[in-house]
């Protein structure tokens, strides 16, 4: 785990160094280009702002109503058997349908449990190593006008399962 943490520390500086260095050597006006990209990045954030407000509001309402406590109690038997924190199950389910709705839950977990807690760490990794299954399938297959999706769903579920198990194992090792 030490090595993994160390690797995390150096990746971003190396990446910045490499991209800027490569850009300079290739004769790119690096600073101006950076500014142009940064502007696009800001636009991306402005575009997702309404989505975030809508979803955080919805999760906020659910949280304040006490529903998550009820859900946690209801899921207790299941989470005891699987040995996962109860917050993870709703996240896993929502994540299959919509990644932005899942983001709402993620932020709620970070806020209440902290991003460095066991649950927070599982969440961070889980969101980094899986994608939305049903959303991706419906949008992409619509483009190809396909209705029979054959083994796509089982493959997607399998890889999500592997990602989930890995996230839980890694998080348990990082957060002692």
């Amino acid at each position: 785990m030490e090595a993994l943490t160390h690797l995390s520390d150096i990746i971003i500086p190396i990446l910045i160094f490499y991209v800027v260095g490569y850009g300079m050597v290739s004769g790119v006006k690096v600073y101006e280009t950076f500014l142009k990209g940064a502007k696009d990045g800001l636009r991306v954030v402005v575009d997702i702002l309404p989505t975030l407000i809508g979803l955080m509001m919805a999760v906020g309402v659910l949280r304040a109503s006490g529903f998550f406590e009820l859900l946690g109690t209801l899921l207790q038997p299941l989470t005891n058997v699987l040995r996962v924190p109860s917050q993870i199950i709703p996240l896993l389910i929502v994540k299959m349908f919509s990644s932005s709705a899942a983001t709402g839950l993620v932020l709620d977990i970070f806020k209440n449990m902290g991003p460095d807690s066991y649950v927070g760490m599982i969440t961070s990794l889980l969101m980094s190593c899986t994608e939305t299954i049903f959303y991706t399938m419906s949008v992409y297959f619509l483009a190809a006008k396909v209705t029979k999706t054959r083994y796509t769903l089982t493959g997607a579920l399998l890889s999500t399962l592997v990602g989930t198990v890995m996230s839980i194992l890694l998080a348990a090792n990082i957060v002692k």
Partner: peptide, 11 residues
């Protein structure tokens, strides 16, 4: 995001 997209624009 601005930092990341700026870097990617250079790339």
């Amino acid at each position: 995001m601005a930092l990341w997209m700026g870097l990617m624009e250079i790339a």
